[in-house]
């Protein structure tokens, strides 16, 4: 096969793979009256923005909550996992191996089971339907991954660098804060991106722990849409398009971090 032919084949395969994404965008611009057309319109020749107008009218609070939950999860995840990664990579604690093992196992526990445990605890503690509770629960998806990524990355920092800091009189805290953390920027970015994306996409914790809350995330916004009005698919798909923006931005702005994160022991619920 010539190289040009391969590029053509590659384009074709990508087009097939991304067809559902195209369809989502297509439907989001389709008029209600054309929605049940047979055969379906493969291109919105007579596009409408009513779907997006519905999003602006009804879904903005959900988007705001998701943003807040995502950022909160990022913060919590990085604050918890970066120091742990530093310790496991550079300070060689006794029992560190066992802890890494526990973290690997923790990643494999189905989210739905964690959700049940959280539900029982939150119900008793009276923190069901709270944003903070949702942030805490969402962070359980990302923290084990975060520690493993930070450990792997910080193990690659030359010992000479930390030793030099020690000779200059820096303790572990200083070394961590002023030497290790600044050179670990890539790891911070990778962990933050994935933590945000997982929290943003989470449905399991949202539906169990925040199903009756005043501030619900966008995944529940879409879910309620599907449940309530089976007819307004342009509004549903418009919300889906908006909910996909973080993933798209991430891919455009931070492609290499994404690939690194996937191969570094990818996890997804």
């Amino acid at each position: 096969m010539s190289r040009r032919l391969k590029t053509a084949a590659g384009l074709g395969l990508t087009a097939i793979m991304l067809f559902p994404v195209y369809w989502m965008i297509n439907v989001s611009f389709t008029r209600d009256t054309d929605m049940r057309a047979s055969p379906p319109h493969v291109f919105p020749f007579d596009p409408t923005l009513e779907g997006y107008r519905a999003v602006l009218d009804q879904q903005l609070p959900y988007l705001g909550t998701s943003l807040l939950v995502g950022l909160g999860t990022v913060l919590l995840t990085v604050v918890l996992s970066a120091p742990a990664g530093y310790s496991l990579a550079k300070l060689r604690p006794r029992g560190g191996g066992a802890l890494s093992f526990v973290l690997l196992i923790a990643q494999m526990i189905p989210g739905i089971i964690m959700a049940m445990g959280f539900y029982a605890i939150y119900l008793k503690a009276g923190v069901l339907n709270s944003t903070a509770g949702l942030i805490l629960a969402d962070s359980t998806i990302a923290v084990p991954f975060g520690v493993l990524i930070f450990t792997a990355f910080m193990s690659g920092i030359p010992d000479e660098l930390t030793a030099a800091a020690t000779v200059d009189g820096a303790g572990p805290l200083r070394t961590f804060w002023s030497v290790v953390l600044p050179v670990s920027r890539n790891a911070v970015v990778t962990v933050s991106l994935f933590a945000f994306l997982w929290a943003w996409s989470d449905f399991v914790f949202a539906t169990t722990l925040d199903g009756g809350g005043d501030h619900q995330p966008i995944t529940l916004g879409i879910y309620r849409y599907i449940g309530n009005n089976n007819q307004q698919w342009n509004a549903i798909m418009a919300t889906a398009v908006i909910a996909s923006i973080p993933a798209t931005l991430l891919l455009i702005l931070a492609q290499r971090y994404v690939a690194a994160g996937v191969t570094a022991g990818a996890v997804k619920d």
């Binding site: 793979m17 991304l18 559902p20 994404v21 989502m24 994306l197 943003w200 996409s201 449905f203 966008i218 995944t219 879409i222 879910y223 889906a240 909910a243 996909s244 993933a247 798209t248 991430l250 891919l251 994404v258 690939a259 996937v262 997804k268 619920d269």
Partner: peptide, 10 residues
Amino acid sequence: LVPWLLPLIV
């Protein structure tokens, strides 16, 4: 990678 990154509800 897009399908893998999209929220599952989407």
